[in-house]
Design a protein around this nucleic acid. Structure first.
Lengths: 263, 263
DNA sequence: CTAATAGTGTCTATAAGACACTATATA
DNA sequence: TATATAGTGTCTTATAGACACTATTAG
């Protein structure tokens, strides 16, 4: 009556062809950095700006055939291997693309709308990563420069973007904005010790708000439970001004994700 | 030299077998409801509790063979079809499982760790849904009762759960907690008009906090920009007490997702 | 001295929390 | 009358924001 005696045998005889399966499972990464700029917008001196790294798809693929969405700008990414998660694939691809590991990487969405990729049923896991500018500049210099570039957000949205990457980038920015205000990811854009105005400029680069720009920000910083001034009161820096500035650091917490609601 | 002249031809000849592809793409749903209870925990009278609907996997499958993870309790779900997104599949499955549509449904994670399903490389999209108790009771009564049940969260974690559903349920609860405090999903657990104490009990069922339990909650409610008392001052209800209580409703907003930070 | 960045002091309005109090119904 | 839920008043303390002010350096 029953063909198989137990679960083991059933698994050995399991045939996934009973179901229609996807044609591809991929990970894409919106790689962000913050660069120094000189800009004055109605009395406020903007010193840092958020940028995204995009790659230009080749016109021809490895076999010399016309490439899908060739010539358009796209998020770096690639196919997930069966022995890894989408998150691990993103980590691997980030390392391949920029040579860095150990930086902030976060999954924020799945893009699986039928027809999003003309090659078939291809599912993309979207991640955003925060990489110090230094690493990206090395990467871009190493390349022949034409096909990897850093863009401001405005510039990126004026490009001809591949697939549904416009929507993915929009969501990536929404996520990074929210995380900047509700968690302590801001630290990923800063060196291990930083001045109040450096933190202020990083926040303003991603999310402009009067309360962040105001002088009051200096007082607020002293009351935040996850930021402390470096112990020795004489440790200061003059890298941003003639008057030496106090240095602060983020206190490591178990619960990084819910630092929340502070800025 | 080049086999194909243009992108069209390349797509027509695209062969997904160049890459290893997943063996299955599924959607699972943590279906939550809030039921009335009578319980007293150190001076605070708990009147509502969060519950989750789980199904017990059959011992034998449709062909009479031993079923994978048979006998264990699991989240309802199923395979995504190639003409729909994971979200649409979840909507369809929710409707098949409970007969309801138009309720709150949200994607919150992807589970794709190799080995999570012994049948192969199977990716699950996790969603949570909020369904009024009434519908679930109908569903459970219609079934032969043994294989669909409502559990409190504590009860659920004491069951033998299939696959990685323990981890999925844990994350579902984290997400619903956060959303209850930062958005106005609370309304999904309430009827269209409600009393202050009903809202209070719904919030307490998901996230206990002194400030919610306190009398001050009554004053707070009047200042929330997304809640209003129903227009006619005489419209009251006695369903919870002898003294008639004022009825309130949620004001519909475009930006439901960022009602944020109010409770 | 000036210019530039780094901070502080002070005032006001509002919100959060503790907790005692009053109100309206039924039985 | 007692009891249960509904709701208010008052006080204290903490915080947010506006905005004017002082501090420290280089040149």
């Amino acid at each position: 009556m029953s063909k198989y005696q137990n679960e083991e045998e059933v698994i050995l005889n399991y045939n996934s062809n009973k179901y229609i399966t996807p044609d591809g499972y991929t990970s894409d990464i919106a790689i962000f950095t913050i660069t120094n700029v000189e800009e004055e917008i109605n009395n406020y001196k903007k010193k840092k700006a958020l940028k995204i790294m995009l790659i230009q798809r080749a016109e021809l693929d490895a076999e010399g055939e016309p490439n899908i969405e060739g010539g358009k700008w796209a998020l770096p990414g690639g196919f997930v291997q069966p022995n890894e998660t989408a998150y691990e694939a993103a980590k691997r691809e980030l390392s391949e693309e920029t040579g860095v590991s150990g930086v902030h990487l976060k999954h924020f969405g799945v893009y699986d709308k039928p027809g999003r990729d003309r090659r078939g049923w291809i599912i993309s896991n979207a991640h955003y990563a925060i990489v110090p500018e230094f690493h990206l500049e090395k990467r871009i210099a190493a390349d022949d420069a034409a096909e990897v570039e850093l863009f401001t957000i405005d510039e990126a949205f004026n490009l001809d973007l591949a697939f549904d990457h416009r929507a993915i980038i929009t969501e990536a920015i929404n996520n990074i904005k929210r995380d900047m205000l509700q968690t302590n990811v801001a630290k990923e854009f800063l060196s291990s010790v930083f001045t109040v105005s450096e933190l202020q400029q990083v926040l303003l680069a991603v999310y402009y708000h009067k309360s962040i720009e105001s002088d009051n920000f200096f007082k607020k910083i002293k009351n935040l439970p996850f930021i402390e001034r470096v112990s020795n009161k004489d440790i200061k820096t003059q890298r941003n001004s003639k008057r030496p500035a106090t240095l602060y650091r983020f206190i490591e917490e178990e619960d990084n994700e819910i630092a929340s609601k502070y800025f």
